[in-house]
């Protein structure tokens, strides 16, 4: 479990180690604001610049709503569970508030 700055660093490290498909698990997240959104967007940009992609596990409608208001649900994959992305080689990080 990490906070937003640690999540940013975790993604940077994963990409530096060669990861191109990264999942961020927000299942246990209680609160997401624009700072956290910014970290997610930064991770998405970093991965797509390298031909990779980001999946976000976000079962909470409350957290999902923040993505939707920012229209980010249209450009990144919001998943209901980690199982829904099973079978893909993914580095993962689980942020907390």
């Amino acid at each position: 479990m990490v906070g937003a700055p640690e999540l940013r660093q975790a993604v940077v490290s994963a990409v530096a180690e060669g990861a191109r498909l990264v999942a961020v698990d927000l299942s246990d997240l209680d609160f997401l604001d624009s700072f956290g959104i910014g970290v997610i967007v930064g991770a998405l940009k970093r991965l797509r610049q390298r031909g990779g992609d980001l999946a976000v596990v976000c079962p909470s409608t409350r957290i999902r709503r923040v993505f939707e208001i920012c229209d980010l649900d249209k450009i990144l994959a919001l998943r209901q569970s980690v199982d829904s992305i099973a079978g893909t080689a993914l580095a993962s990080a689980r942020p907390e508030e």
Binding site: V41, L44, I75
Partner: peptide, 9 residues
């Protein structure tokens, strides 16, 4: 849009 990591507040 991916260049805008802030400003969503």
């Amino acid at each position: 849009r991916l260049g805008h990591e802030s400003g969503m507040g």
